[in-house]
């Protein structure tokens, strides 16, 4: 039980961020909850092997990332748009215009390559430092930075194109 208490002490501050990560990466709520559940359990089982408590966040997200990849391999497909939207936005208390805006961005983010999408989510939603992301995704730090930068640029580009298409239709 000491182990569980220690684990929970470290886990509790990260719970929200991990939950956001799972919510952002998974295709539906059930998958997100499974991913969170499995990540917590796996992290707890391997908790004895964790030597440095300060690396707990990276340790946790690495597990989540690996489990997500495994999940993708198993499912081979993603959930539909409505489920995804319900997962990310249903709980938010926002107006209809904002909900549309968020839904549009969410749609564009899901179109990004996996590594760029994950890097963006880990950086902007889970608030993980770049170094932690590097450990999770592998590669160099500059590569992680490039993924985030390019992800943002691609995302902004996709959002701009959409807006132009809307404008042209009006014209």
């Amino acid at each position: 039980m000491i182990k569980q208490a220690e684990f929970m002490k470290l886990y509790e501050p990260i719970h929200q961020r991990l939950s956001n990560y799972c919510r952002s990466m998974a295709s539906c709520r059930a998958d997100a909850e499974d991913l969170l559940n499995d990540t917590a359990l796996a992290a707890f089982e391997q908790f004895d092997k964790l030597e440095d408590a300060s690396a707990f966040a990276g340790y946790l997200f690495t597990i989540a990332s690996n489990l997500f990849k495994k999940q993708i391999r198993r499912k081979k497909f993603r959930g539909n748009y409505n489920e995804k939207e319900a997962l990310l936005i249903a709980d938010l208390n926002v107006d209809a215009e904002t909900r549309t805006e968020l839904s549009l961005i969410m749609q564009k983010i899901d179109m990004l390559p996996n590594l760029q999408r994950e890097a963006l989510i880990l950086f902007h939603i889970s608030d993980l430092p770049l170094e932690e992301i590097r450990k999770i995704q592998g590669g160099s730090l500059s590569a992680v930075k490039q993924r985030i930068k390019r992800g943002r640029e691609r995302l902004m580009q996709m959002l701009t194109e959409k807006q132009r298409q809307v404008v042209s239709l009006i014209l």
């Binding site: 952002s24 926002v94 805006e101 968020l102 961005i105």
Partner: peptide, 20 residues
């Protein structure tokens, strides 16, 4: 985008910490 990220962050956890 930043607004989007901030809004997403506001989502409640998928489950309570007690549940975990």
């Amino acid at each position: 985008l930043d607004n989007y990220f901030e809004q997403v962050k506001k989502n409640p956890p998928l489950m309570d910490i007690e549940k975990v």
